[in-house]
């Protein structure tokens, strides 16, 4: 079974902060790395879209074969990227908004430094819950 969704958080200087796949696969398959590679290759297009839109949610910004890439850029230039096959905008928009929300809460933790990788298990658990809520 192929991975349906790959979600990445990319920092200000295009550094990876967080990655997750839905549904979560126990062992790393080669395809998941390819998905991340595809997402990273779309970063330049995100930069273009950021200046064209007033919204944080940029919708589908890129396509790669059967995959669509959606993006959401926060005010601090943190990029939330999602690779998906199905084109259903509404759940993706809600997913992004809610992840943004928990990201903001996490940012208030004095032990987390802005623009560094997110290692917290609580954050991870919350994102997983959101993924389960919107994509399955």
């Amino acid at each position: 079974m192929s991975v349906l969704y790959t979600f990445l958080i990319i920092g200000k200087n295009d550094n990876p902060l967080y990655e997750i796949e839905f549904p979560s696969s126990s062992q790393k398959k080669e395809s998941t790395y390819i998905n991340q590679y595809i997402l990273h290759s779309s970063l330049d297009i995100v930069e273009e879209h950021v200046w064209k839109s007033n919204n944080m949610y940029l919708k589908i910004i890129d396509k790669y074969n059967k995959y669509n890439i959606s993006s959401y850029v926060t005010a601090g230039q943190i990029k939330l990227m999602l690779l998906h096959e199905k084109k259903d905008e509404d759940p993706i928009r809600s997913f992004f908004t809610e992840v943004h929300d928990i990201y903001l809460k996490y940012l208030l933790n004095p032990f987390y430094t802005f623009n560094t990788p997110i290692t917290s298990p609580t954050f991870d658990a919350r994102v997983r819950k959101l993924g389960a809520k919107y994509f399955f």
Binding site: K105, N109, T122
Partner: peptide
């Protein structure tokens, strides 16, 4: 302690 999560080492 609102928002606070202690890193493992602390």
């Amino acid at each position: 302690i609102d928002f606070v999560e202690l890193p493992e080492q602390y």
